[in-house]
Every structure is written in structure tokens, then in C-alpha cells.
Design a protein around this nucleic acid. Structure first.
Lengths: 197, 197
DNA sequence: CCTACCGATCGGTAGG
DNA sequence: CCTACCGATCGGTAGG
């Protein structure tokens, strides 16, 4: 990857290390070593270690939000008011963001708890708003009879957990390409929700 | 909870803290403070910090394995060769272990990566063997036509991720009791797999 | 981006 | 279970 800035290079290396060993177990000097500079030199580009984590988590969150927004819009254009179409689009978009940058997404999924109190609760609120997209379509699908009666909150949590698990086992050089995995997860998700009529 | 031993008290407090802040972000002195003793005093009962993590992870793994073994046995006794019955029993057993001790299970699900290389790969192997139980029943169900055609490895990963997500959001004092949550997750799991015939 | 350095904290040991 | 202490490492600053 071509680095546009030193700051970006730091965040890329940090994403890799944070995902691999976790934020707390990664030191500023670990990041610096991977860039062949002294630890103290990083402070010319970042103000704190948490600052780097925040940049990664915030960018990942924005990517997920933007992709979901676009996916919902396109689903609505294709099949207005169709909850299955909307959920399928959301799942596919989520998988695409996740497989598009495993490091960044993995840090977002697993390491946001290491943020300070205000940022942590800000992330929690954004995650809840994101999950609410799924809850809304599940709720609508139940009302329409497209989806089986179920608890929308549990179904949405289970569904998102299922696809977020990908962050732990997806391997870009693995058996299946990202597109095929997305197909499978869309199928599994819809089957989990759909009524059998 | 009545503590049977000082060692057990240490592990209980450590489970709580490891789950809350993560292993790397929790110091031996944090654990000691929660027990109102000096940090160095803990070393009369444990040989290292990783030793404590290992005890927690190993015990949790054993609980999941034992529960799964029993669940498969009972399912086979009730409905021999019925993959749906087996998966339902496995999911229910898993949820019961998880909700039975959120701290221990949460550490097992999230913090096993902090173990040293040998222990980490031992845990990975046990997790794979555990997941293989699900894969086997899914494979059998597809062969029988009970389950929809799908990739058993992806389906098993997705299913386990979905229920493991519980470790992140289950609240013993929450809206729904553990039993009701288990019912929902069993339903969602079977629906995810079952063919619509 | 470097050297030099700060105070704090880490996991762990010695010896009682 | 305590006091006293070890060497190592931590995030971060000063001053160039």
C-alpha cells in the first residue's frame, strides 16, 4: 500500500499490531520499531497512544455507517419497503467493509473497549444506532409476515455477532474469496429470519 | 459466592477484571487490591499472571466441552441420528454454560489470545474440536435433507459467533431471563440451518 | 526524526 | 500475608 502520509503509515502499522496482540499489549515502541524509528519520534505525528486507537476505530465506524447508509438507499430504490432486500444489502455491505480491511475492522470490533470513557460510550451509541438499522427492518418484516415472529433485538444482535465473527477467522488468502463468504452469510442471515411460507 | 479457597477467590476476581478491562490492561496489583492484599502476596497462591488466565480459560473450556458431550449424548438418546435435535441441544448447552458464568465465559471467548504460544494453540485446537461437533451435525443434516445446502464450516462459525456474542451483551439482570434467551437462540440457529420443506 | 530523560508502573523475588 | 526491592518497560516530554 502506498502511504499518503506518515500519520497514515503509523495507523496502518498500529491497526495490524492492535488486531494481532490487542491495544493494551502493544506499546508505542512496538509501533515505532515496525516503522524503523525511535518510540519518541512518533509523538511528532500523534498526541497519544489512545489517539491512534481512536483514529482507527472512528474511521472504521464511519466506513460501516457510510456503507450501511448507501446499502439501505439502494435496497429501497430496488425494492421499496422490502425488509429482506434491506437486510441482505446491509449484511453484504457489512461483510464488504469487514473483508476490505481486516485489521481496521478487527480493531473496531474487538478493541473499542480500550478507549477512554467518553469515546467508549460514543462508540457504543454509534454501534447501537447501527444495530437499530437491522432491528427496524426485522421489526418491519415481522409486521409484514415476511419474517418469522421473533425478538428483533436478539435477532439483530445474533445476526451482527455472526457476521462480526468474520473479523476473527477471515483470511484474505483463505479457501473462499470474500464475495463467496458474503453470499453465504447473506443466505444464512435471511434464512434465520424468514418465515417458511 | 462462598469461596472454597484463596486461589478460587483470586480467579473469581481476575475473571471479573479480565473480562471488564482485558488481561493485558489488568495488573496483578489490581487483582490484589480487589482482595485487599498487597500485590506480592498473590504469589503465595499463583506462580504467574498468565497462570491465572490459563486456569480460567482451561476451566471454561472444560465446562463447554463437558456440557456439549452431555448434550450430544442426551440428544442421541432422545432422537437418534436427528441433526436438528443435536444442534438444538448443543446450542442450549452452550448458552447455559455462558450465562451460568459470564465472567469466566467472557474471558474464555475474548482473552485466550493473550496466552503464550503453546497454550494459545492448545486452546485453538480445542475450540476447533468443539466447533467440529457443530460441523458434523450440520453436514449430516444436509445429507439427510433436514438442513439446507450450505458450507458447514461457515455455518458452524457463524452459528457459534452468534451465540458467543452473548458474552458481550448478556446481562443477568436484563430484560429476558437466560432461559428465554436460550429459546430464542435455539430457534434462530435451527431456522438458519433448516430447509424449508 | 534523534538523544536523553522523566516518573510511574509492571511482573516477580527474597526473606521473613 | 507483609515489607522491601529488582530490572524492565511503559507513555510521554524537552530540546535540539
Amino acid at each position: 500500500m502506498v502511504e499518503v502520509s506518515r500519520r497514515q503509515a503509523i495507523e496502518d502499522v498500529a491497526s495490524d499490531l492492535f488486531r494481532e496482540r490487542g491495544y493494551a499489549a502493544t506499546s508505542i515502541r512496538d509501533i515505532a520499531r515496525a516503522l524503523s524509528v525511535q518510540g519518541a519520534s512518533l509523538y511528532a505525528h500523534v498526541t497519544s497512544k489512545e489517539d491512534v486507537l481512536w483514529a482507527i476505530v472512528d474511521r472504521a465506524a464511519s466506513r460501516f455507517e457510510a456503507a450501511a447508509e448507501r446499502a439501505e438507499g439502494e435496497a429501497e430504490r430496488r425494492r421499496p419497503g422490502d425488509p429482506a432486500e434491506a437486510v441482505a444489502a446491509l449484511v453484504r455491505a457489512h461483510v464488504e467493509v469487514l473483508t476490505g480491511d481486516v485489521d481496521e475492522s478487527g480493531v473496531f470490533v474487538r478493541e473499542w473497549r480500550s478507549l477512554g470513557p467518553e469515546r467508549r460510550s460514543a462508540v457504543l451509541a454509534r454501534r447501537d444506532a447501527y444495530e437499530a438499522r437491522f432491528r427496524r427492518h426485522i421489526h418491519a418484516g415481522i409486521a409484514l409476515g415476511t419474517f418469522e415472529m421473533t425478538d428483533p433485538a436478539i435477532a439483530a444482535s445474533a445476526l451482527l455477532s455472526a457476521i462480526n465473527g468474520l473479523a476473527s477467522w477471515y483470511d484474505p488468502k483463505g479457501r473462499l474469496p470474500a464475495g463467496r463468504i458474503a453470499d453465504h452469510l447473506v443466505d444464512l442471515s435471511l434464512r434465520m429470519l424468514s418465515s417458511e411460507s
